[in-house]
Design a protein around this nucleic acid. Structure first.
Lengths: 198, 198
DNA sequence: GCCGAAAAAGAACGGTCGTGCTATAACTGG
DNA sequence: CCAGTTATAGCACGACCGTTCTTTTTCGGC
């Protein structure tokens, strides 16, 4: 890896942390430059524009997300077990983020009314994530762990809801019970998905 | 109401809409001035600082929230019925917001790592809202609609999760099924709260 | 260790930010 | 309708924004 690539990676790592705290829009080049010890123009030489940097931040975050959340799940048994791993890995991911929690969650409400390529990239990532959950839930159905008429996309919607609530409770409200609550709620939807529908 | 108070209200109404779109921090005085047809300094004369304006925006939003969500619920029968009204009124509230959806949701992820009086005010509002839900759920327990061992705060956590997911699905993903999904998920937690625990 | 290439710094650009101060315009009670 | 207050505009401030261009420093192959 050349010197330039190393610097570029270092910038992206810093930028990801900053963006999680103050948002992709709130983050500024000057702020980022001082955090990385570079000059504004020195930093800027690595990216075509702030928008391009924002997209690269999302790509960088996505790669780490795959490593830390998706891959561990794919190594575990299919079906309900994999869903549990996915959920637990997400909680760990969100809590491990130095500050600002999961960037995707923060970006979701920041960009939901800001059309453009950054928003488009985020929407793709979020749809991929929901599809991943739905696929695993579908496997749980076909393997008989979940009831036959369970809607995997509905399950994905509800599981995703719990990740959003966890971030809200832990980061905004600083609720020490946030993780416990998330686990209890997750157990509830798993149990409910296993019971014959009523 | 004097002329100044009228202008002040008009500013707050505009500012609330702008803040819901671009965030309480992303919103700028200049932007707001042109939206209201005032000069920057003319607008500024009504507020001590941008931070004070942000707090007033929250107060203004809270008042409207009480009118449109809390009051209709308090007019309906206690217990489960009131919970349903609360949830439906919230969905209507979020969808009716011209653009940007519910400001509290947007502000929650924007401010979760920005200490200060604005964040403090938001946290108070969110805790009040969760407490309101928990209180109504507690009534449902004591009136026998929900099972005895139901944890009202856990119920509030889960219902709140569904509101967050709805905003995500409808505003970011533009999912036409967002409202239907929210209703189905809400029915599920209501049903589950009524069944004897397992 | 030189030399071309790559990386970073410096300086500057027009623009906008939040925020004061001062002057003018618009209201409103007598 | 006038006086006094209140509301709004104008202008300026230093700071920082994203971005570009030019110059200097640093790197890596020979």
């Amino acid at each position: 890896m050349s010197k330039g690539d190393e610097t570029r990676e270092a910038i992206l790592t810093q930028a990801t942390a900053v963006a999680a705290k103050v948002g992709l829009t709130g983050m500024t080049i000057g702020q980022l430059a001082s955090h990385t010890g570079l000059s504004k123009s020195g930093l800027y030489a690595h990216f075509a524009s702030k928008e391009a940097l924002q997209i690269e931040i999302l790509r960088h975050t996505r790669e780490r997300f795959v490593d830390q959340v998706i891959r561990p799940a794919l190594r575990s048994p299919r079906g309900v077990t994999r869903l549990r791993v996915l959920f637990d890995a997400w909680l760990t991911w969100s809590e491990a983020a130095e500050d600002g929690g999961c960037l995707f969650v923060a970006a979701s409400s920041e960009l939901d009314d800001q059309p453009g390529p950054v928003r488009d990239a985020l929407v793709r990532d979020e749809l991929d994530w929901l599809e991943m959950i739905a696929t695993v839930a579908g496997t749980a159905v076909s393997e008989g762990e979940f009831r036959d008429d369970l809607d995997p996309e509905q399950f994905a919607y509800e599981m995703h809801a719990l990740t959003l609530a966890h971030q809200h409770a832990s980061r905004l409200l600083r609720d020490p019970k946030a993780t416990e609550r998330a686990h209890r709620a997750f157990d509830a939807i798993i149990t409910s998905a296993g019971q014959p529908s009523g």
